[in-house]
Amino acid sequence: MFICSQNRWRSLSAERLFDQHPRYEARSAGTEPGARVRVTAGHLGWADVVLVMERRHADILRQKFGEALAGKRLINLRIPDKFQFLDHVLLDLLRERLREQLGPEVL
């Protein structure tokens, strides 16, 4: 589960990296009221791993959904909000951080 603020650029781009992936399924959501898809406890319950773009997203999730995060791996990818949807630099950075955190077999 990928989380950013608005679910328009970073987390949605990350989700798209997994379209048609033979082994993994990804979803995305945002933390802000105007998000394209706003994160819920149900999203977090679905996820095996929760990946946020910034520390503040992790803080919001812990505050609002602490119980739903119990036992979940929560990873901060440290990707700033300065990229457009499917920006090639963003996609390269996502691939790099995902391999660092989850292993080379992920992408």
Rank of each mutant, 00 (worst) to 15 (best):
M1K: 09
F2T: 06
C4A: 04
N7Y: 08
R8P: 00
R8E: 07
W9K: 02
R10N: 05
R10V: 02
S11D: 01
A14D: 06
A14T: 08
A14I: 09
R16E: 10
R16S: 12
F18Y: 05
R23K: 12
Y24I: 11
E25Y: 05
E25N: 06
R27E: 05
S28Y: 09
G30L: 08
G30H: 10
T31V: 04
T31A: 00
T31M: 00
E32M: 11
E32R: 10
P33Q: 03
G34K: 11
G34P: 08
G34Y: 12
G34L: 12
R36E: 15
R36P: 10
R36N: 15
V37Y: 12
V37D: 09
R38G: 03
R38N: 02
R38I: 02
T40K: 09
T40G: 08
G42F: 10
G42W: 09
H43A: 04
H43F: 10
H43L: 03
H43D: 13
L44A: 05
L44S: 09
L44E: 04
W46T: 02
W46D: 01
A47D: 03
D48P: 00
V49C: 09
V49E: 06
V49K: 11
V50S: 07
L51D: 00
L51R: 02
V52F: 07
E54S: 14
E54F: 15
R55T: 14
R56F: 15
D59M: 15
D59I: 15
R62K: 15
K64R: 15
F65Q: 04
G66C: 14
G66P: 15
A68L: 05
A68C: 05
L69E: 01
A70E: 06
A70F: 03
R73T: 13
L74V: 15
L74R: 13
L74D: 07
I75K: 07
N76E: 15
P80S: 01
P80N: 01
D81T: 00
K82S: 10
K82W: 10
K82N: 14
F85R: 04
L86G: 03
L86H: 05
H88R: 14
V89Y: 14
L91W: 01
L91S: 00
D92F: 12
L93C: 02
L93N: 02
L93K: 07
L94T: 04
L94K: 03
R95C: 09
R95A: 12
R99E: 14
R99H: 10
Q101F: 01
Q101K: 05
Q101Y: 01
L102V: 02
L102T: 02
G103F: 09
G103R: 11
P104G: 08
V106E: 00
V106K: 04
L107Q: 02
L107D: 05
